[in-house]
Amino acid sequence: MLSFEHVSKFILSDVSLHIPKGQVVGLIGDTGAGKTTLIKLASGLLKPEEGRVSVMGKDPQDNRSRYGTRLSVLITGTKLLEDGDSARSGLDMLRYTYAIPKEEYLQSYRELSDRFGFKGYENAKLKELSTGQRRRVELAAVCIMRPELVILDEPDVGLDEEGKQILEELVREQAREGVTYLITSHNMPEISNMCDRLAILAEGRLMFYGSESVLRSQYLPINTMTITYDGAIPNIDDLPIVRYRMDGNRIAYDYNSRYITASEVLNVLMKQTGILDVKIQKTDLEQIISKLHG
């Protein structure tokens, strides 16, 4: 669906990645890491200095506007809809621009306005809405175009918890229908929930590209399992436990997820004692970013 081959532009240097159809990829990096440059390259809004970008098998520079019917882009700080439009009139104009059949459009509009909850203010001018309300309308606008590839730059900016939840559900749902997503964010823990893969950029270089589980096992594999037990203290001599801490009838085990899974640890413990409660704590993804930044 989307591939970068040794692409360089501005701060970006020799970036290569391939995003298959139906995947949700989270692009993570600090300010100035090159996230916006990368999504502009993917949209055809920038031309690479070196390397090749391919979207749906073609150079996105070739007739950008024709791609528009299959590609939706939301770039933070760039208005997708005009200030003077309302949610209703703005989305109506998209219906004409993208030649969406009327019935299909009306059905999508009903679904999206219910889902994002903007029916109550659908006729208010966008410039009169709060950042969060406007963002809900813009996300609906992105979806109403029925794209095959969606590029979202910091989509959670201004969204409340409910809005983030709606976005996450929608992205997962559409990905199941084959829509591909490239989403940038500063907020790694939140974005990782909805992504199949993570791409981590630091100072223009792609430091990691793969699933969250691979990222964890590769960079910070130590997880902590805390059990509350009732019975004998379990023997862990045969387990590759890094260290453990005892506090009354609770024990916290640090284990290396590269060598053993949580369920394997738990199976061994359950055979030896009664387990009242289990908590598994994974390493904070922000720590991984820090580690990648050196």
Binding site: S65, R66, V73, T97
Partner: peptide, 14 residues
């Protein structure tokens, strides 16, 4: 000025 020209260029309309 407001940068929305980039969004306009992606639209399937001249």
């Amino acid at each position: 000025w407001d940068g929305s020209i980039s969004t306009e260029l992606l639209r399937p309309i001249s």
